[in-house]
Design a binder for these strands. Structure first.
Length: 139
DNA sequence: CGTCTTTGACCGGCGC
DNA sequence: GCGCCGGTCAAAGACG
């Protein structure tokens, strides 16, 4: 995607502009992936914070780098849900973004976990971000 | 060159 | 017992 990660940059269209017809003939090299992962080995509980942000942009630079690792369609919503993860080494924070079927301009961002690394940019980005935190729901 | 994105396929847990 | 869903990962390609 050529989307600029600038917090102030406003993308006119959502999701549009991509469709990079990947369809690459993926190899069938040992597909034994997934499960083998020590799943659920987390001792510390993961605080889940759901934030409703009004933005057309999916990935807003909130001070941290997010790497999209999956996209699945949900039944409740006719729109696909996007899964993001902090690209940090010591940061196991996960972000879940879903658009509202009624208002595509509203996205439900669910943060899972807490960052363990400093972020100066967050300070500056916090100002505008705080403004977007109109509705804060704590699960 | 490095980095990020996208898609498909797979697995685990849970429900009935 | 089986099926279904959600969730995750890997690789390749593309872009700055």
């Amino acid at each position: 995607m050529v989307n600029g990660r600038a917090a102030g940059a406003a993308a006119p269209e959502i999701g549009a502009g991509s469709s990079s017809g990947v369809g690459v003939g993926r190899d069938q090299e040992t597909k034994g992936k997934g499960g083998a992962r020590g799943r659920g080995s987390r001792k510390a509980s993961r605080p889940r914070f759901a934030f409703q942000t009004k933005s057309e942009n999916d990935v807003l630079d909130d001070g941290y780098r997010w790497r999209k690792y999956g996209q699945k369609a949900v039944k409740n919503s006719a729109f696909p849900r996007s899964y993001y993860r902090c690209t940090h080494h010591t940061c196991n924070v996960k972000k879940q973004v879903q658009r509202l079927a009624k208002d595509t301009s509203i996205v439900v961002t669910t943060y899972e976990g807490v960052h363990n690394h400093p972020c100066e940019k967050l300070m500056e980005a916090l100002n505008p971000i705080l403004r977007q935190l109109q509705f804060l729901s704590q699960l």
